[in-house]
Write a protein that binds this DNA or RNA. Structure first.
Lengths: 322, 322
DNA sequence: TTCCTAATACTCCAACGGAGCATAAGGAAG
DNA sequence: CTTCCTTATGCTCCGTTGGAGTATTAGGAA
């Protein structure tokens, strides 16, 4: 969907010689792997597909596919029998030291959305807040005292007064201390700050003090943080939540899915207004009575908005007339 | 700046065996290259660094650096003596067929912002609208009749009635036909549509009819489109324009730089209000008289906002109270 | 029948953003 | 020296959006 999806043109036209700014690319062969953050939301909990609860699914890059994304998609779908509704590239890392020696691995990470189904051999679904307990602000701010204390200590241990102020500020902005509001999109920055402060197990200098979530293999927790951050940003301007829901749903189910992903409570009347005004959904005519209260109408996603939506995030004061 | 910037942890802890969902990554060695879209704005024109006007700078990935981004940065800075103010990863492609045989090349593309300086050997700065003339909407809508005619013909040539409607819609939404407004962020989608319709030279079925901009080598024009789209989106919520300006500037210069990148005219009073209200800049005290009118005050970018800005693009109706 | 729960429908209002006008301060032309 | 042209800068007007809260409806359970 987001992927530039053209077939690639053939070899270069002859006659163009390669000057200094174009180096031969064939020098250093590297191994290439694809790493997937596969997300589903079940029971108000965002879950990810893992191997042994500590590793993200990863596979060697398979030549022969039209694109990297097609390769990843078919590999995941074959291994897990899950249908990926939405796939987007996250980030590409160069990993040195993992396979040792001169060989480096290029890791290309992807985000994929689906609905939870039986996990394949060796795989399991895990709630993502298990790895990031401080990211769930739906009921209070978990660990906020622990974090604030630990990060303050880290800030005070800075080598210079300037660095100290900077550390204090970064911690305050990222985690919403000192009256700065909580911004759910900063998941990656928060994780990186904790890493830098050696407060997560993956950090080389980690001393084992507070237990901040379950660690993952290699840098998979960072990749997961990247995926969470990206998804939290995306749900605000692209109708991707629907990939995580059943075909028919109530507005509360929709809201609770968004709340699960964002890790925040939403204002119900305004959320409904937002959804209905944007005409993202249409009534199916049915209703569901098992809600504990008045029966809720059922809705379905209007697939055509995927085409319509020009999504003009216009923050620029564009001049109308000449 | 945007890069996840941690050093990577060491090899995996032993004891975790690799199940089905984790394949060995060492099977297929590939070549890896970095491709850079280096942007500067001079004289109200966005420019990119090219080789021979048709190729983006590219280099083999050099192991030994902390990260891919550091590798790219140092390589560009060494080759060109330009200082890159801002660097961000764009997209990673797998290119088959370029180097032939079994070997595939992984291309990791980057966007870099700088100020124009003397281009090195074999390199030259080119205005980016040379490659995308239809993207500059500052004075009218260039080529819009040509494009509308050609795209309508393409839509009518669709194999089925359904496909025809879909093509018409896509063209209308992407290019702003039929009363749909122009959205400057859709640069990549527009290029891909033109490619699909075989209206650009790079397309395999291109028949040479209308001349829509200068073609580039391989898929570099698509990479450039990706960079333009990303930058146009970014300037709306991140203060990156300042990387392209001199240390001191007038508000009109700032506005014209944004206009150059966005390819649109902006509403002057509202643009000023936007900038000043957000406290992105501060007065230097100086002024510049060579404006043709009343002398303009000089401003400088407030570097500290890079830290401050939490940039809550909150489109969600977050509940305040419990 | 009463009460609890959630669904659904409105209302109120402050803030933001689009659009346009008024005034200021230089330089150039007459 | 005055007039005029040009751009800079400051301010107003007002419709739309989005935050917050309240009222009413319709099921099920006590």
């Amino acid at each position: 969907m987001d992927e530039p999806s053209l077939a690639r043109p053939g070899p270069a036209a002859p006659g163009l010689k390669a000057p200094t700014l174009v180096e031969s690319a064939v020098t250093q062969p590297t191994a290439t792997e694809l790493i997937a953050v596969i997300v589903a939301v079940t029971d108000r909990t965002p879950r990810i597909l893992t191997v042994d609860g500590a590793t993200l699914p990863a596979g060697a890059f398979q030549p022969g596919y039209r694109s990297l994304q097609a390769s990843l998609r078919s590999w995941v779908e074959k291994q897990t029998r899950l249908r990926l509704g939405y796939v987007e590239q996250l980030y590409t890392f160069a990993d040195h030291g993992r396979t040792g020696a001169d060989q480096r691995t290029i890791s290309i990470s992807y985000l994929g959305l689906t609905r939870e189904g039986p996990a394949g051999r060796g795989a399991s679904w895990q709630g993502w807040y298990r790895y990031f307990p401080w990211e769930d602000h739906r009921t209070g701010s978990p660990l906020s005292e622990t974090l604030e204390t630990a990060l303050r200590a880290w800030a005070e241990a800075a080598p210079s007064p300037g660095a100290r102020t900077q550390r204090r500020q970064r911690a305050a902005y990222s985690f919403g201390f000192d009256g700065h509001g909580w911004n759910e999109e900063l998941t990656l920055q928060r994780y990186e700050l904790l890493y830098e402060a050696s407060l997560v197990e993956e950090a080389p200098e980690f001393r084992g003090t507070p237990q901040l979530g379950t660690a993952m293999r290699h840098d998979h927790r960072r990749i997961l943080a990247t995926g969470i951050a990206r998804l939290r940003a995306k749900i605000k301007y692209r109708p991707v939540v629907f990939e995580l829901l059943a075909a028919e749903f109530t507005l509360l189910e929709l809201q609770q899915s968004v709340e699960a992903l964002a890790g925040r409570r939403l204002h119900k009347p305004n959320f409904r207004r937002l959804i209905t005004q944007q005409q993202l959904v249409e009534e199916t005519g049915g209703s569901r009575a098992e809600t504990g209260g008045r029966p809720a109408r059922l809705y379905r996603f209007r697939r055509d908005v995927l085409l319509e939506r020009a999504l003009g995030g216009t923050k620029l004061p564009i001049a109308r007339s000449r």
